[in-house]
């Protein structure tokens, strides 16, 4: 491929890619469906919610930074197991993870999201948006919850979710890529594998377009997270420097 036309891939190759990426996803998804069921979708009680709400802003920010960082470590492991990712140059591996790891965390969030109650698994139980009030980012939190809800409404299978996560991570239009063409080829193959799975699962034609729309929503969520972090850091530079996880600081330039 010269980058303009999709690469030629055999059905067997697509099936293999689906298998590898689905396996990588299941091995690194942090919580298995069975584990989630055992958590019995238990919600925080009102006094527990209030305890989170009365935490100092910087304490709640630190807690969320820790939880995001834990989730990102699993995404890094997912990336490493995607066929072709480790063959990219180190610069591009770093560029893709810096730009895409939080996006994949947001994609994966639909697995731990209860649409009916508008709650997400956090710190041991299911939490509504009000739990995160102390962060002082109500608008961002509402958008993250809305995004998770809209992802849930697509009812993606684990295979579909795995391939969409890989597609998001291998975005060839990220700034500072050195071997853009190689990333592009890999992303095109993943897109073909995603289309293949959607067809095999007899999903309606519109699902792929709906997923494409999610890509821009994810970028918006991540740039808003960066803005909120900058605003927080301007007020609490020492907290970020001394109390935030080093990986979080590396990824988000804190």
């Amino acid at each position: 491929s010269n980058g303009d036309s999709p690469p030629t891939v055999s059905m067997a190759e697509l099936d293999h890619l689906v298998q590898i990426i689905s396996k990588s996803h299941l091995e690194t998804c942090q919580y298995l469906r069975e584990e989630l069921q055992q958590m019995s979708w238990q919600n925080f009680l009102q006094d527990e919610v209030e305890r989170y709400q009365s935490k100092p802003r910087e304490v709640m920010w630190q807690l969320c930074a820790v939880k995001i960082t834990e989730a990102i470590q699993y995404v890094v492991e997912f990336a490493k197991r995607i066929d072709g990712f480790m063959d990219l140059c180190q610069n591009d591996q770093i560029v893709l993870l810096k730009a895409g790891s939080l996006e994949v965390v947001f994609v994966r969030m639909c697995r731990v999201f209860d649409s009916q109650n508008n709650t997400v698994y956090f710190d041991g139980k299911f939490a509504g948006p009000d739990v995160f009030k102390a962060l002082g980012c109500d608008d961002l939190i509402t958008s993250v919850f809305d995004f998770a809800k809209s992802m849930c409404s697509l009812h993606l299978t684990e295979d579909e979710l795995a391939l969409f996560s890989a597609f998001v991570l291998l975005s060839a239009d990220r700034s500072w890529l050195q071997e853009k063409l190689q990333v592009e080829k890999l992303q095109q193959k993943i897109q073909l594998a995603l289309q293949h799975v959607l067809q095999k699962n007899q999903r309606e034609d519109g699902v792929l377009n709906k997923l494409r729309c999610k890509v821009s929503a994810l970028r918006s969520l991540c740039s808003r997270h960066t803005e909120k972090l900058s605003a927080f850091r301007a007020i609490y530079p020492d907290i970020v420097r001394t109390h935030f996880p080093p990986l979080y600081k590396e990824l988000f330039g804190a």
């Binding site: 091995e27 690194t28 834990e70 470590q73 699993y74 890094v76 492991e77 490493k80 480790m86 180190q90 591996q93 770093i94 993870l97 810096k98 080093p246 990986l247 590396e250 990824l251």
Partner: peptide, 20 residues
């Protein structure tokens, strides 16, 4: 490299938090 020390480590490690 220094700027992304931990990411480099995670990428190079064969054992990871996931395996542990």
């Amino acid at each position: 490299k220094e700027k992304h020390k931990i990411l480099h480590q995670l990428l190079q490690n064969s054992t990871s938090p996931v395996d542990l």
